[in-house]
Computed example of a mutant assay.
Amino acid sequence: MLRARGLRLTAPRQFVLEAVYRLRHATPDQIHADVAERAAGVNITTVYRTLELLEDLELITHAHLSHGAPTYHPVGDLAHAHLVCRGCGAVEELPERALVGLVGELRETRGFRLDIGHVALFGLCGSCTPEGEPC
């Protein structure tokens, strides 16, 4: 895809793309740390520029799963929202079909088209919820 757009597939670009696929949901700092293990000369600025390029090419996308940096993941995944535990920080994928009712209602009542990939629902996972506590 890069070559089709007249761009070169450089080693840093390859390393960043591979890191996103390997880590699944990762911040730029996490991606940089992963890339640095393979290529010490790749700096954080290169990682940010590469993430922006790869997102423009629709190879990856991002979601905001905390107040910090965006979290990147592959586009090739099935459309999904994210469940983010405020206790342990775990991120789980929630299939698009789980939100079909909400997506339909928003479209019908408000003409709003929800971008599932950017949806993050925050709460406590089963491991962090005290026994017997109601939702």
Rank of each mutant, 00 (worst) to 15 (best):
L59F: 06
S66T: 03
G41S: 12
G89C: 08
G123R: 12
P12T: 05
L124C: 09
A81E: 09
I44C: 05
T71G: 03
H62Y: 13
L23C: 10
C128K: 10
L106S: 04
A98D: 02
D77Q: 14
H80L: 09
A63H: 03
A98L: 04
S66R: 00
H118P: 02
Y72N: 02
G68T: 11
R110N: 07
L99N: 00
F122Y: 15
A120S: 02
P70K: 01
C85D: 00
I116M: 10
H32E: 13
G126S: 11
H62Q: 13
V35D: 06
G101T: 04
D34Q: 01
R49C: 02
L59G: 05
A4Y: 08
F112S: 08
G87A: 09
R5L: 13
T45H: 13
V20I: 11
Y21T: 03
V91I: 15
L106K: 02
L99D: 00
P95N: 14
R49K: 06
A4I: 10
A40L: 07
R107H: 10
L9H: 08
E58L: 04
D115W: 07
T27D: 04
R22D: 09
L7G: 06
L23R: 11
E58A: 07
R8T: 06
Y72R: 00
R8D: 08
T71L: 03
R5F: 14
A63I: 05
C128H: 11
L78S: 14
I31S: 03
V42W: 03
A79E: 00
Y21I: 02
H80N: 12
E96D: 12
V75N: 04
H64G: 08
A39K: 12
R97E: 15
P95D: 11
R38M: 12
T45F: 09
V119A: 01
C125S: 11
P134L: 04
M1Q: 11
A81P: 10
L59M: 15
Y48K: 12
T50S: 08
G104T: 11
G41I: 13
L99R: 00
G89Q: 07
D56R: 15
I44H: 13
R110S: 12
V20A: 05
V91H: 13
A36H: 09
E55Q: 15
Y21A: 04
A120R: 00
V119Y: 00
A69S: 14
T61C: 10
V42S: 05
V35L: 11
V103R: 15
D56C: 13
V91K: 11
I60S: 05
L102C: 08
F112G: 07
A40N: 07
G123V: 12
L83T: 04
L102A: 15
R13I: 07
A33H: 02
V20Q: 03
P74D: 12
R3N: 08
D115I: 13
L106V: 01
A98I: 00
R49V: 02
T27H: 04
C88T: 09
A39S: 15
